[in-house]
């Protein structure tokens, strides 16, 4: 009967593992920032799924290791063999097939969710500069997700600017809630990364390339856009405020900023001019000319992106 008992223990062990890893997978949702787009929910589902599987494997193998450590210690001078087993074909085939199946399952879920993201609008449109663009790219290019608004996102070292449909340029990104907005990403001199954690969305802007993404925010509020592709000295300061608001509030804001220029201090220029106190100071070249003015005011209709 010891064999029956061992199988019984194994069943309890696996059932416990499934229970705990399922619980950890549910916790995974709380580790993420709020879900501000429809896409965010899909990404969090995928993350929870991956966390569940990962916790199962991690806890399973680590508890087997710990079990060995606790119960199979050698006596200090006992260098005799443990057991003579050099392998077991059945077992080895089993643990080769298992990861294959797991990977297939994860890959299927991933593709499935990536497709859903596309349907919902997380579509990258990569326009190749050459005429002989690959067929896939051409296909993507021809079927952009219809979007209510198109906003140009202009990244330069080290600030973000947004050109709205009425040609207003501002340093805040305002998006109407529950509508698809197409963002045309442009970078002026180096590569920058468009990233809003609550949107679960990130895309590089590359100089000389037109790259667009479509976002559909579903939750009003204020968020932070952060450059996520290292872009030089003042990279960390390259942020912008993002407001998701009702259609009416969005229109009101747009009309208001069209009337008066909004002066916003450029964080990098401001820091350069007041030179923060740090313990170690190098005075190395920052890439920002000293002549840049602090109050880099923007007239609402200057041709900012040229």
């Amino acid at each position: 009967m010891p064999q029956f008992f061992e199988y019984f223990l194994l069943t309890i062990f696996i059932a416990g593992l499934i229970f705990i890893s399922h619980w950890i997978g549910q916790q995974a949702y709380t580790w993420m920032p709020p879900q501000a787009t429809a896409e965010a929910q899909r990404v969090d589902d995928l993350f929870s799924f991956l966390t569940t599987i990962g916790a199962f494997i991690l806890l399973g193998l680590v508890s087997m290791m710990l079990y060995s450590v606790l119960f199979y210690r050698a006596k200090p001078d006992d260098y005799s063999e443990g057991h003579p087993s050099r392998g077991n074909a059945k077992l080895e085939i089993f643990w080769t097939i298992t990861p294959i199946l797991l990977v297939a399952w994860i890959a299927f879920q991933n593709i499935n969710i990536y497709k859903q993201l596309n349907i919902l609008g997380l579509k990258q449109i990569v326009q190749f500069p050459l005429d002989a663009a690959p067929a896939e790219a051409a296909m993507v290019q021809n079927t952009p997700k219809p979007a209510a608004e198109t906003i140009q996102v202009i990244a330069k070292q080290w600030n973000w600017r947004f050109r709205y449909p009425n040609d207003v340029i501002n340093r805040e990104l305002h998006l109407p809630v529950n509508e698809s907005t197409r963002l045309n990403l442009q970078a002026e001199e180096v590569i920058h990364g468009f990233y809003i954690p609550e949107f679960r969305l990130r895309q590089d802007a590359i100089p000389g390339r037109d790259i667009a993404i479509v976002v559909t925010p579903i939750r009003t509020g204020k968020y932070r856009l952060q450059d996520a592709e290292f872009s030089g000295t003042y990279f960390a300061l390259m942020q912008a405020d993002v407001y998701v608001e009702s259609r009416e509030a969005y229109e009101r804001w747009l009309a208001r900023v069209a009337q008066q220029p909004i002066e916003l201090v450029d964080a990098a220029v401001a820091e350069q001019s007041r030179s923060p106190r740090t313990l170690l100071k190098t005075g190395w070249y920052t890439g920002l000319s000293d002549s840049a003015s602090v109050a880099d005011s923007l007239s609402p209709k200057d041709g900012g992106n040229s």
């Binding site: 991956l50 990962g54 994860i106 969710i113 679960r200 969305l201």
Partner: peptide
Amino acid sequence: FLFGGITGVMLAANSFDLHVNNT
């Protein structure tokens, strides 16, 4: 390594990677 390998598979899933890429 098990922990690092598991987060590695997570990062291979490009839908999830878009959120944590460069974080």
